[in-house]
Amino acid sequence: MKLKEMYDLAVRKGIENDPRGKKEVDKILKKAQQSFEELKDDEKKEFDIEKLANPYSDTRILFGDPETEIKNVLSGIDIEVGEVLIGDRLREKGRQVDLLLAHHPEGKALVGLYDVMNMQSEILEIFGVPINIAEGIMASRISEVKRGLLPLNHNKAVDAARIFGIPMMCIHTPADNMVTTFLQNLINKKDPETVGDIIKILKEIPEYEEAVKIGAGPTIVVGDKKRKAGKVFVDMTGGTGGSEDAFSKLATAGVGTIVGMHIGEKHRKEAEKNHINVIIAGHMASDSLGMNLVLDEFAKQGVEIMTCAGLTRVAR
């Protein structure tokens, strides 16, 4: 596959699995096109053209010719300077590495991480929170994340990849969409009665089964295994953690249990205060599941996959 074909396929699978539905995503792309057309010529130079076809600003080709033929990929949850060196060392030892593929964003995709958080408002609406309230509580959180990203050394790993001449790409929200939809559909189908039943469902999935072996498996951080699960919200996409103010609104909307990748202590306390059960499925395990669903699509096209940096490879 060519690098651009892999990128386009990842975006397409992300859209297909977007919790908001393709119709809503198409509206966003249409608005991006309208915004671009309304810009003056000098303003268009600063516009990220990728937004016209890719609604996920945290997913980008970071370095390399899009027409490069990719046969072998080294993929990890994080591709930082150390992983770039691993890729170069593998090349020295005779292993073919055509692409460094990260899950977590680097470079310009890291700069744009905050922008995908807008989708959380629409996801909250799906689970019963009025959109005006959802947008209101997310606005300050998005601004907070944007400010927090400003001082980071965004291009450190990308520069290393450039020095060694290894193409680099990251796939964040599309993979998160895939794990979210996969788990939400599975849990909805199995209709667990208790929080403990959800834990059992998760532990039957190979990525979580492997995580259990190192003590990083699914964990109940609010509630206990005997509590009724109620309406289950798989909260694993939308850039990064949302607003702590969402928990009271979700409780009012009837959500009984949240299944997430990770949670901060302030957020956990808000969930506890609002009597919402919280299961942390595991960050690396959940990211591995999402990436595996993407990597499977590449493997179908004959791309060879090597993994590193916390990515547990399971082919389906």
Rank of each mutant, 00 (worst) to 15 (best):
K2R: 15
L3A: 00
M6A: 05
Y7D: 06
D8M: 05
D8S: 12
L9D: 05
A10H: 03
V11T: 08
V11D: 03
R12V: 04
I15T: 01
E16Q: 10
E16N: 03
P19Y: 09
K22Q: 12
K22W: 02
E24N: 06
D26S: 01
D26W: 11
K27M: 11
K31I: 15
Q34L: 10
E38V: 06
D42C: 09
E46V: 04
L52H: 03
N54W: 02
I61E: 00
G64D: 01
P66A: 05
K71S: 02
K71I: 10
D78K: 12
E80R: 14
V81N: 11
I86W: 07
D88R: 15
R91H: 08
R91Y: 02
K93G: 02
R95L: 14
L101E: 12
E106D: 13
E106C: 04
G107Q: 13
L110S: 08
L113H: 04
D115V: 12
S121E: 05
S121G: 00
E125L: 01
E125K: 04
I126F: 14
P130G: 02
P130V: 09
N132K: 12
I133F: 14
E135D: 08
E135W: 12
M138Q: 10
R141K: 15
R141W: 09
I142D: 03
K146Y: 09
R147A: 11
P151L: 10
L152C: 06
H154F: 10
N155H: 15
V158R: 02
A161M: 07
R162W: 04
F164R: 05
F164K: 13
F164C: 02
I166G: 00
I166P: 01
M168N: 01
C170F: 11
T173F: 02
P174L: 06
N177W: 00
N188D: 09
K189M: 06
K190I: 09
D191H: 13
P192T: 13
P192Q: 00
G196P: 11
D197Y: 09
I199K: 03
K203D: 15
E204S: 13
E210A: 07
I214Q: 07
G215H: 02
G215Y: 02
P218I: 00
I220R: 08
K226T: 14
K228A: 08
K228T: 11
F233T: 09
D235G: 14
G242D: 02
S248V: 12
S248A: 10
T252H: 15
G256V: 01
G264E: 14
E265P: 08
H267M: 06
A271Y: 01
A271Q: 00
N274F: 01
I276D: 06
I276C: 09
I276S: 09
I280E: 15
S286E: 09
D287N: 12
S288M: 12
M291W: 14
N292E: 01
N292R: 15
L295W: 11
F298K: 05
F298Y: 15
K300A: 10
V303E: 04
V303Y: 06
E304M: 07
E304G: 10
I305A: 03
A309Q: 11
T312H: 13
T312S: 13
